[in-house]
Nucleic acid binder design. Sequence first.
RNA 1: GCUCGGAUGGUGGAAUUGGUAGACACGUUGGACUUAAAAUCCAAUGGGAAGAAAUUCCCGUGCGGGUUCAAGUCCCGCUCCGAGUACCA
Length: 960
Amino acid sequence: MSYNFNKIEADWQKYWAENQTFKASNNSDKPKYYVLDMFPYPSGAGLHVGHPLGYIASDIYSRYKRHKGFNVLHPQGYDSFGLPAEQYAIQTGQHPAVTTEQNIKRYREQLDKMGFSFDWSREVRTSDPDYYRWTQWIFIQLFESWYDEEAQKARAISQLEEIFSSNGNLQVRATCDEDVQEFSSEQWNAFSSEEKQEQLLKYRLTYLAETEVNWVPQLGTVLANDEIVNGVSERGGYPVVRKKMTQWSMRISAYAERLLQGLEQIDWTESLKESQRNWIGKSVGAMVTFHLHEETLKQVQGDEKIKSFGISVFTTRPDTIYGVTFMTLAPEHDLVLKITTSEQKEEVEAYVAASAKRSERERMADVKTISGVFTGAYAEHPFTKEPVPIWIGDYVLAGYGTGAVMAVPCGDQRDYDFAKHFAGQKGMPEIKNIFQDVDISEEAHSGKDGTIIANSGFLNGMPYKKALKAAIEELEKIGLGKGKINYRLRDAVFSRQRYWGEPFPVYYVNGMPQMIDEKYLPIRLPEVEKYLPTETGEPPLGNSSKWAWDRKKNKVVENEKIDHESVFPLELNTMPGWAGSSWYLFRYMDPLNEERFVSPEAQQYWENVDLYIGGSEHATGHLLYSRFWTKLLKDRGFLSVEEPFKKLINQGMILGQSAFVYRLEGENTFVSKNLTEGRKVQPIHADVSLVNFSDELDIKGFKKWRPEFKNAEFITEEDGTYVVGREVEKMSKSKYNVVNPDDICEDYGADTLRMYEMFLGPLEQAKPWNTAGITGVHNFLKKFWKLYHSSASREEEKFSVSEEKASADSLKTLHKTIKKVTEDIETFSFNTSVSTFMICVNELSAQKCNQREVLEPLAVLIAPYAPHIAEELWKRLGQNESVTTATYPVYEEKFLVESTKEYPISFNGKMRFTMELPLDLSKDEIQEAVMNDDRTNNQLSGSTPKKIIVVPGKIVNIVI
RNA sequence: GCUCGGAUGGUGGAAUUGGUAGACACGUUGGACUUAAAAUCCAAUGGGAAGAAAUUCCCGUGCGGGUUCAAGUCCCGCUCCGAGUACCA
C-alpha cells in the first residue's frame, strides 16, 4: 500500500478524539507546560492558510514537550463576541448567536483536519453565558477595587471606606479622578449614601464618567484608542469624531508603572515591548505652577480658584525654566476664555471655534502648519516674577499633561518654530537663550549631555542633571512645583453601544450605578427585535422590553415594572471585545468550575502561559489589557501570578499571491502579461484557483467564473497560453487570492500542509504563500514513507523494517538529525528542521537504510511535525500505544565523532581546494601536509607565502 | 520625524555567532521509464570568461568606506523596503 494520507489522517484524527489523547490533567507528577494560541474570532469566511501558521508552530512545540515528559496544557477556544456577526445580524436579522455557532462549527472542522493536539474538553467561548458570567464577575471586582499608590497595589473599596470614615481622604494616596474634593472624616460621615457613592466612584478601578470618546457614527459605537488607526476605525475604516459621553472606563493608568516594569520580567520580542513602552509613554519631569500676572489677575477678579492655583504645566525640562519665553495653552483649556483680554477676545474665540471644528484626522494630517493666537494675558515666572505672555495653539494637546506648556524655544523645536513664526508680533518676546556657548540662531538645542545652563540665576554653571534636580528642589521649597512622572497611557473606555457583547451586571438607582450580587450572575443578553440603536439613540439593548432589574426577586424583569423602588433600569451598554480575551488563559485551567473563574489549585498548578503565539497586531490592545487584569486579580488575591504570558512569539503574516489579468480599456479583451506593453490595459484580480503553477490562466474556467467574462476574448502568447501577472498582497476574499487549508489537506494531506507552512521561512517573518512549492514537502513525506516499506512492484508496497544492526553511516545520519532538530525546536526555527528531515531522508534512502534501530526513533522525531504519518508508522512498527506517549530520542555524541576533516585550503582568504586530513594532526603537521601538496605549489606558482594561518578543525589560509 | 525590524540566485530561504556563501526546496533544462500523458527516478543549474575535456580564472550577500590572515556576519556613513508610533511638552 502506498502513502494514503487521506485515510491515515482520518483514522488517526478519529483515534485521538476517541481516546482523548491530548486531554491534560490538573494532577500530575510531571512538570507542567502551558502552550497557548491567541484564540480566533470565528468569522464567516473560515480559515485560510495564513491562520494556522501559529497554531502549527505551537502544536509542534506542545507535542515536542509531551515527548520530553511534560504535562502539557494546549487548549483552544473562540473569541466569539464581536462586530462582524452583529453587522451581519443588522443586515439579515439573523441572531448573532446563530451565525456565530455556524462559524464555530466550520472552524472546528477545519482545525480538526489539521491534526492539532488541542484539549477540546477545555474549550471556551467568550459569548457563552457560563463564560461571560465570570467576565461580569471580574468587572465587579474592578468596581470593588481602588489603587493604593502607597502600597502599589489594588485594594478592596471597603477598606477605602474605612479609611474615609476614620481619616477622610487627605492622607490617601490613590489613583483617582482629577476633580476629587478633599474631605475630613467628619465630612465623609455626614455625607448621604448617594454622596458617598459619588465620591467612591472617583476611586474605583472601573468607573462611570463623562469622557471625551472616539465616536464612530457609522458603527454607532465608541471605540478605545487602540481600536483607532490613523484616525479611522480599525474595523471598517470609518471616520471617528470626538464626543463627550458618559461611559464606563478602566483605570488602567493606575497600573502604568507596573505594566512598564513588568516588561523586564517577560520574554517577549524587543519590538513588542517597545510598542508597549511607547504606548505607556513614561516621562519624568515636574509640575510647575505659574501664577497669573497682576494685570491679568484684575481681569479674572472674583475667581478665587484661578487666583490661587494659576496655571500648572508639566515639563520634562525644569532645568530650562529660566528659558521660558511664553506659555501655550491648548485651545480647549478651561482657562482660555477666562483670561483672554477684551482686546484679543474676538481673535481667540475665532481660533478656539476653528480648532474645535477640525477633526482629529485633519489636525494630525496637518502637523506642519503653525497656528496660534496671543490671549493678551500674562503669567508670572515662578523665580524671576517677570511677566510671561500666554498664547494658545493647537500644537498643545488638551489630553496630555495639563494641556498647557511652558514654552522654552531655545531647548524645544516646536516652541522654537512657534516663536519664530510669531516673532515680532505682540506678545512674542525675543527668544531667551539659557545654554552656555550654544548657538540657537538656526534651531533649538534639544541635547542634554554636556550642556551647561547659563542666564538662569541659581542654576548658572550647572550641567543638565544637576540643574534638573536643583530646579525641582527649589520649586518645591517655594511651593510652586514638584517632581512628577507623567504617562501617556489613558484610561480605557469600556462601554460599547452594541448588542453582541457581555452585558454589564449593573442597574441604576437615581442615576448611580449598582452592582448585581455575584450570586445572580450571569446576566444574560436579552432578546431584541432589532440590533440597531433605538429611535431615541440608545444602544441596541434599549430595544429589549425585558431589561430591568428586580432587586427583591433578584432577576431580570419587564421594563414596564420599573418603579425606581424595587425595579430599576439595567445598563444598556455592553462590554468591548477585549473584555473576554483579557482573562481567558485562566479559564482554560479550570473551564467547568461553577464556583470560581478558576480554582486556586488549578491556577497555582498551571501558573500562567509558558508560550503564547499570535499576531503582533495585539501589541497595545489585548496584550496590555490582559496584563492589567492579571495584575488586578493578583492584587485582590485571586491569582498567584503577576504576568499572564511568560514567553510570546509573534508569527508573521502569510501573504497571498494575487493573480492579474489585463483587460484592454473599454473592451472585453484580455491581453497576456508579456504582451501588455504599449497597450492601455486595466489589471483585474483573477481567482488564484484559475491559475496553474506556471502562471497560466485556465481560460475556460475564467469564462465561467463570472458572467461578464463569458464572451471575453483573449490575446495569448504564441503557444496559446494566457499568462497572468502576480503580486504579493494580504490574503483576502476581495482579492481572490485566498487559499483554503481544507483543499490542501484534501490534495496533499495535513502533514504536508503542516510541514510546508513551517518550511516557508522563519516563523516571525511575513512571507508569501506559493502553493507551487508544496510538492517538494509532499515528495519528502512519500520518500519518508518508502524508508519503511519495500516495493516488489509498483502497486505492492509492504511494510518492511529490518531488525539488523544499522550501519555507522545511518546512525550518524540519525543522530545528526536528532541534534539539529532538537536545537531547532528549542529555538523555534521550525523551517530549518524541515530541511534537516529532508537531508536525513535523502541520506537514509541513499544508504538503503531500513533498520528499526534508526527508523523507530526517527518516527518519534518527526511526530511533532507530521503526527499522522508518524502514528501510522509507529503502529506498523508494532507499537500498541500512540506515538505521543513515546519518549523523545536522545542524541549521542559517540555516533558523530569524526576522525578526519575536509579542510578548506584558502589563499588570501579565497578557498581554492579542500584536503581531507586527520583531525588529530597538530598545527605544524597540517601546515606540512598542505605545503607538500601539489595544488599548493600550483597556487603559489613559485612565490613564498608571507604567512600561513592554521586553525585546526576549521581552516587553513595562506597569505601570498 | 522618531523607534524597531529587514535587504543573500529566477523564487522561498540556509550559513555552526568571524572560517568552504547559496544547504534544503521550488522553478528551469536535459535524460530514463511509457504508445502517450501523469507519476517516479537520474543529472545539471549564482553570473561571466577560457578550454575538446578534466579543469582553470574573474565577479558576486542593497551602496560606499574601514577593521582582520579571513566579513553575508564586526565598526562607520548612506539608500531602499516593511512594521509600530505620531505635535507627548
